[in-house]
Amino acid sequence: MPVETNWVRYGKKQEYIGYMAKMDRVNENLPAVIVIQEIWGVDAHIRDITERFAQAGYLAFAPDLYAENAERIEDLKEERVVEVRNFLDTLPHTVWNNPDEREQAILELEEGKQNRVTKTFEKMFGGIQSSVYIENLLAATSFLREECKASKGQGVVSIGFCMGGALSGLLACRDQQLKGAAIFYGTAPSEEELKNINCPLYGFYGELDKRITDHVPAFDDQMKSSHKSFDYQIYQDTHHAFFNDTRSSYNVSAARDAYQKVLQFFNNVLVKG
């Protein structure tokens, strides 16, 4: 069945915008999946994931966290983000987080591109604006439960990747009505935050993504100590961003297994309750 997609405004003042997908000719109210972007924004990959969840029978919605007043801010427009990603792809991954080496590589670009890459990189990697992003995500879950005709009155779950994975966990701490949250290679909420979690969490990680994965056992212990539900899967010989089929880190077997598991997880928390 074809998938119907469109950009939808939401929020008290219609100040936010998100990419919505649902199966065409399905008129009944559907449970909703919020797809939370990577650092690259609501790009073709995130839109594709949103459509995959729509094909699985959900109302799928990807809030654009880089938009203000429903429009992308200049330094975070899609073409600017792509320019930074293409630049970073020319460098060894170790250089990404090495300010001196990265700055030297930027200085080798032509002047106009230097300025654009510097500004956009600083906007993207200057730290997650969690308070701003969470307000957006809370507005999205409220919209899907209370206003959206295609999902009104139904349960909502979240899934996020990298930056979005961290936000998916944080959303579970802030939205007491969320039915479940999937975290793909994202950092865990603080021990204090996770005490407020009211739904099951499921995490998916790559063994070789040490910066994130080495902290998962401690996160698991904290969740158990707080009597919270947390399952996780660590894929051997697998890197960060293994689910992103546009990146060199993509691992087809890990991605296939994770997709099956997350669909079953969502079915359990949304349909079976």
Rank of each mutant, 00 (worst) to 15 (best):
F265Q: 03
N251Q: 14
E71Q: 12
C148V: 02
A255Q: 06
D48H: 15
E28P: 04
I183S: 02
N97S: 15
R80H: 13
D220R: 06
V82Q: 14
N6P: 01
S225I: 06
F204W: 06
N198K: 15
D220Y: 11
K22L: 15
A258R: 00
Y202L: 13
M20P: 01
F61S: 03
Y259I: 12
E193N: 09
C199P: 06
L65Q: 04
R80N: 14
P2W: 07
I39W: 09
E135V: 08
C199M: 05
L263T: 00
A62Q: 04
R25F: 12
F184V: 14
K152P: 04
E28C: 15
L270Y: 04
R52Q: 10
K261Y: 02
A241T: 14
K272D: 07
T246G: 13
F53A: 09
E193L: 11
S229R: 15
D64S: 14
K12A: 15
T120G: 05
Q114P: 04
E193I: 03
Q260L: 14
K13D: 10
Y19G: 08
F242H: 08
T213M: 10
V8N: 06
R102Q: 11
T141M: 12
A140I: 05
A254H: 04
S151T: 10
Y232S: 05
V156E: 03
P217N: 11
Y10T: 08
M163A: 07
L178E: 04
A62V: 07
G180D: 01
I17K: 09
R174G: 02
L109Y: 03
F87G: 01
I73V: 08
G112I: 08
K179Y: 00
R102D: 11
A21H: 01
Q114L: 11
L107D: 13
E111C: 08
H45P: 00
I212D: 01
Q129S: 10
T187V: 14
L270S: 05
T90L: 12
A172F: 03
G153D: 13
Q260G: 15
F204G: 04
Y205F: 15
R116H: 08
Q154D: 05
L91W: 07
I212W: 02
P99K: 00
I36W: 00
L91H: 06
R47I: 09
K179P: 01
V42P: 03
T5H: 00
I159P: 01
L171C: 05
F87R: 02
K195Q: 07
K123I: 01
W7N: 12
E135F: 13
E207K: 03
D89I: 02
N196A: 15
S229L: 15
F87I: 04
F204T: 00
M20H: 10
A166N: 09
Q264P: 02
E191C: 12
N6T: 11
W7P: 04
K123T: 02
V33C: 07
F242I: 06
D209R: 09
V216N: 05
T238R: 02
V117G: 05
A62K: 00
G273T: 06
V84D: 01
S130D: 12
E191K: 13
I183L: 06
E15S: 09
Q14H: 06
I212K: 00
A60I: 03
Y58W: 09
Q176V: 07
V84P: 01
M223D: 03
Q114R: 14
Y235E: 07
